[in-house]
Design a protein around this nucleic acid. Structure first.
Lengths: 207, 207
DNA sequence: GCAGACTCTAAGCGCTTGCTCACCGTCGCG
DNA sequence: CGCGACGGTGAGCAAGCGCTTAGAGTCTGC
C-alpha cells in the first residue's frame, strides 16, 4: 500500500473492506445494528439499506453473525490502535494519559454508531469470536494500566487502586458511545477535552 | 402498609409485584433480559424459567414489551429514590455527592442484572413508555446537577462544566452494570467506595 | 354443593426469521 | 464468438416467533 492509499484508507473508515458490495453491506449493518441492536435487525433490513436483495448478503458473508464479527474485529483493532498511538506519542505519563482519553473519547463520540455496535453487542458473538475480541480488549486495558503504573512510579499520579481506576477510566470513555447524540450541544472534540481533564483530576496529576 | 411490611418490601426487590405468579415471571424476565438482551429473549424462555407455560405470561402481562416496561419503571423509580435519599441525607455537598455515588454504584453492582435491563434496553420500549422513563431519568440528572451546583456555589467544588460533569458522573455509575461481574474480585461496597473517591477527585472537593 | 371467577395449560395460528437454491445478466479471455 | 466465472435476484423453505383460544382445574362465597 502506498502512503497515499494508506491516508485514503484512514479517512474512509471501512476502506479495508472489499469488494464495494461487501463494504456497502457492512456499512448498512453498522447503521442498523447501532440503531436497533443486533437481534432486532433483520438480514432484509441490512440488504435493503444497502440497496440489494437479502440473498446478496450471503455471497459476501456466511452468516449475519460473521458480519457482526467483522465489524467488531475492525472496530476493536482501531480502538487498540488509538490507545497505542497515544501511548507511543511520548511525553510524561500525564500527557500520554490525556492524549489517550482525548482520542479514545473522540472516536467513541464521532463514530458512535460503530462504537455502540463494537462495545455493546459482544454478547451476540459466537463463543470463539467473542474470545478473540476479549483478547483485544485486554490489550487495551493493559495500555491504560501501564500508563497509570508509570505515573504512580514517577510520583506524577496519586492512585491508590490502579486496576480499579483503569476499569473506571475505560468505562467512562466507552459509555460515551451510549449517550452521545449528534443532535446534542457538544462536538466529539469538546467531549474529548472535557473527559481528558476529568481523568487527570481522577489520578490527581501534578503538572 | 405497616412498617414491617415496608421493611419486607425493601428487602425483597420485587415485593411490590403481585400476585406471586406475576412476580415469578418478572424475576425470570429480568434474568433472561440481562443475560441475552430483550430481543434475543423469547416468551417461551421467560415462561420456562418461571416454571410455567408460555400462555401463562399473557394472563399477567398484555405483551412482552409490557413486562419490560414494568421492570424498567420499577428500576428507574428505585434509582431515583436512591439518589434522592442520598441528597436528603443532609451534610455538605461533598458528603451528599459521595453518598449518592456510593449508593447508586452499589445498586448497579449488586443488582447488576436488573440495572443492565433498566439502563440498556430503553430502545426496546414503545414510544410512550420510553417517554415516561426518559422523564424519570431527567429527574435523576437534576439531583446530581443540583448537588454539583451547590458545591460550586459554596466554593467546595471546582467544576468548570457542571452539565458535562453531571453526564460523566452518571455515565460512570451506570456503566458499572455493564462490566460488573459477580465472579470478579470486588464487592458492590468496594466499587461504591472506589467510585465515590474518584468522583470527589473529579470535582476537586475540598474537605 | 354448586355457580362463577380466576389461574393455568395444550395446541396451534399467522407471520417473520435466517438462510438456500435455481436461475440470469455481464464480464474477461482463448 | 463461445464459455466459464462471478456477482446478483426472486421465490421460498424450515424453524421459531409473539400471541390467542378452548377448555380444565381450583378456590371462594352464598
Amino acid at each position: 500500500m502506498t502512503a497515499a492509499e494508506e491516508t485514503a484508507r484512514e479517512d474512509a473508515p471501512w476502506g479495508e473492506v472489499t469488494p464495494e458490495a461487501a463494504r456497502k453491506l457492512l456499512v448498512a449493518a453498522v447503521a442498523a445494528f447501532a440503531e436497533r441492536g443486533y437481534h432486532a435487525t433483520t438480514t432484509r433490513d441490512i440488504a435493503g439499506r444497502a440497496g440489494m436483495s437479502p440473498a446478496a448478503l450471503y455471497i459476501h458473508y456466511k452468516t449475519k453473525e460473521e458480519l457482526l464479527h467483522r465489524i467488531s474485529r475492525i472496530g476493536h483493532d482501531k480502538a487498540l490502535e488509538i490507545l497505542q498511538a497515544a501511548d507511543a506519542s511520548g511525553g510524561a505519563p500525564s500527557e500520554r494519559l490525556a492524549e489517550a482519553v482525548r482520542s479514545f473519547v473522540r472516536w467513541h463520540a464521532g463514530r458512535h454508531d460503530t462504537a455502540r455496535v463494537v462495545q455493546y453487542e459482544l454478547d451476540a458473538l459466537s463463543d470463539e469470536h467473542r474470545a478473540e475480541i476479549v483478547g483485544l480488549r485486554r490489550r487495551s486495558d493493559e495500555v491504560v494500566r501501564d500508563i497509570l503504573d508509570e505515573g504512580v512510579e514517577t510520583g506524577e499520579f496519586d492512585v491508590p487502586d490502579v486496576p480499579g481506576t483503569t476499569v473506571a477510566v475505560l468505562s467512562l470513555c466507552i459509555d460515551v458511545a451510549r449517550w452521545f447524540n449528534v443532535a446534542g450541544r457538544r462536538t466529539p472534540d469538546e467531549v474529548g477535552a472535557l473527559y481528558a481533564d476529568l481523568v487527570l483530576r481522577m489520578v490527581r496529576a501534578q503538572k
